Amino acid sequence: MRPFAALLRTLALFALVAGIAGCAAKQPGPTAGGEAKAVFAAFTAREGKDTAPAYSLAGSMSFSRGNRSGRLNYRLYGNAGGATRLDLTTPVGGSYALLFEDNHGFFAFVPDRNAVYRHGDTRQGAAKLGMPLPFTLGEMAALVAGRFSALAPARYAAAKKTAEGYEYTFSGSSRLASLGLDFAGNPRHLVGVGIEPWRIDFADDEAAPGFAAPVARRLTLTTPGGATLVVRVKALQPRPSPYPVADLELPVPPTAAEHALDGSGDEPSLPEL
Rank of each mutant, 00 (worst) to 15 (best):
D204T: 09
I195A: 15
D205E: 12
A141F: 05
T162D: 02
A184C: 02
A213L: 09
A157T: 07
T220N: 09
A163Y: 06
E167C: 04
P224C: 08
N186T: 11
F202Y: 15
T222K: 13
M140D: 12
T223Q: 06
G226P: 10
G180E: 14
N186H: 14
D204H: 15
Y168W: 08
G225A: 01
Y168F: 12
F183R: 13
G194P: 05
F202Q: 03
G146P: 14
D201G: 13
E196S: 10
T220L: 11
L221R: 12
P214K: 11
E206D: 13
G225N: 00
T222H: 12
A142S: 15
A157H: 05
S149A: 15
R218G: 00
A213R: 15
G185L: 10
K160Y: 05
L179M: 04
G146W: 14
R147A: 13
I200K: 09
A141D: 07
R155L: 10
F170I: 03
T162E: 08
Y156V: 04
D205H: 14
P214N: 09
Y156A: 05
A227V: 06
A227D: 08
R217A: 10
T169K: 03
T223L: 07
L179F: 01
D201L: 11
E196D: 13
F211C: 01
A227L: 03
I200D: 07
A177V: 00
T222P: 04
A150R: 14
L181F: 02
L176D: 00
A141W: 06
A203S: 15
P209V: 09
A203N: 11
A154R: 14
F211N: 01
L221Y: 11
A157F: 02
V191Y: 02
F148I: 04
G192V: 05
G192E: 03
V193D: 01
T162G: 02
G146M: 13
F183G: 04
E196K: 14
G225F: 04
T223P: 03
A154W: 08
S173H: 10
A213N: 12
Y156S: 03
A154N: 10
